[in-house]
């Protein structure tokens, strides 16, 4: 089995900051807006390098989304930055009318997604944002897994015309994707070849899936891991090709199972190749305060949970 090396824990939000810094140098049309969370979003460097292209909007997310929509008129490419909760649920109608329905080239960049925001608790931990964003016609939805991939995705979405939701997080997690890997929107990455089960993971759960694969290998189970950084448009072919071989699948995400990656995968499978599926996701619940590791354990979102889900789905396999 192909193995991956953690080159050192880093936060995905810093990958966003690094990508934005690079875009600042290479693309004069990129502008950045932030709602009083510059440090949390790692937008400091872009702001320092390009004060004329940086817009501090204060604690006013609805206005930030509208400003960004307006800024596209005249050719700018706005990147908005705040927490995932305030990037989506708080401003859903603004995104819907002024950005998505108006086909504006706005990049909604959301940090602190999911439970791993940690101690701030459920008011700040959104587990519904993928669902909210994927339902919007024309919206591209991306959830990156590590620092390198987040940096690459940030750079890539500037070249894509249309609204994008880019989701990343707060904690320092394994950084294992190649630094020079180009990011292709909608193109899943097969990380390991396997015959017994397909594990499709997104965001922080990708590394957990790789960890689970090692445990499964010791148990004699061969897992094919797919890093599905783009939830919409979904790489149907990568999923269908893999399950045609493995005949069962586990989906893993830091999100409610309602509306998340798992449901998107289930739709593809039910239409094209009905396949037993288990969901590693939160079970229609809000989060709570705690350390990221404690929360991922309590809510069943780690390697251990993926191993258990795999054992369950293998029993259902025909």
């Amino acid at each position: 089995m192909k193995t991956y090396t953690n080159t050192g824990n880093k936060d995905t939000r810093s990958g966003f900051g690094a990508g934005l810094t690079e875009l600042g140098k290479t693309n004069n049309n990129v502008v950045a807006l932030c709602a009083d969370l510059i440090g949390s979003l790692k937008m400091d460097e872009f702001k320092a390098n390009h004060p004329e292209r940086f817009f501090q909007v204060g604690i006013a997310e609805a206005n930030m989304i509208g400003l960004a929509a307006g800024m596209t008129i005249g050719g700018k490419i706005p990147f908005t930055g705040t927490f995932a909760n305030f990037s989506t649920g708080r401003v859903y109608d603004q995104i819907r009318q002024s950005v998505a329905y108006s086909d504006k080239n706005v990049k909604i960049c959301a940090s602190h997604a999911g439970l791993t925001l940690g101690e701030d608790g459920a008011t700040h931990q959104i587990l519904e944002d993928i669902g909210l964003m994927k339902m919007l016609p024309g919206m591209t939805v991306i959830n990156t897994c590590d620092y390198n991939q987040t940096k690459a995705a940030t750079i890539a979405i500037a070249e894509h015309h249309g609204p994008v939701y880019l989701r990343f997080g707060r904690p320092k997690v394994a950084n294992f994707t190649p630094e020079d890997q180009t990011f292709e929107i909608g193109k899943a990455l097969k990380l390991t070849d396997g015959d017994d089960v397909t594990i499709v993971a997104t965001g922080h759960l990708v590394w957990e899936a790789l960890e689970a694969a090692k445990v499964l290998q010791e148990k004699g189970i061969s897992a094919e891991i797919i890093n599905i950084h783009t939830i919409k448009p979904l790489d149907n072919k990568a999923i269908l090709d893999s399950v045609s071989k493995t005949k069962c699948i586990v989906t893993a995400e830091e999100h409610n199972y309602l509306g998340g990656l798992g449901e998107s995968v289930a739709r593809v499978l039910s239409q094209h190749n009905p396949t037993p599926q288990e969901f590693v996701a939160t079970n229609d619940t809000f989060g709570e305060s705690g350390t990221p590791a404690q929360l991922m354990e309590k809510y069943g979102l780690n390697a251990n949970a993926i191993v258990k889900a795999t054992e369950t789905v293998l029993k259902r396999k025909k």
Partner: peptide, 20 residues
């Protein structure tokens, strides 16, 4: 240049266009 109907969004959009 932008959809409108759901009220209260036009100031933000217009101000954004003015910034550009």
């Amino acid at each position: 240049r932008v959809a409108s109907g759901s009220l209260g969004q036009g100031f933000s959009v217009a101000i954004g266009a003015a910034e550009t």
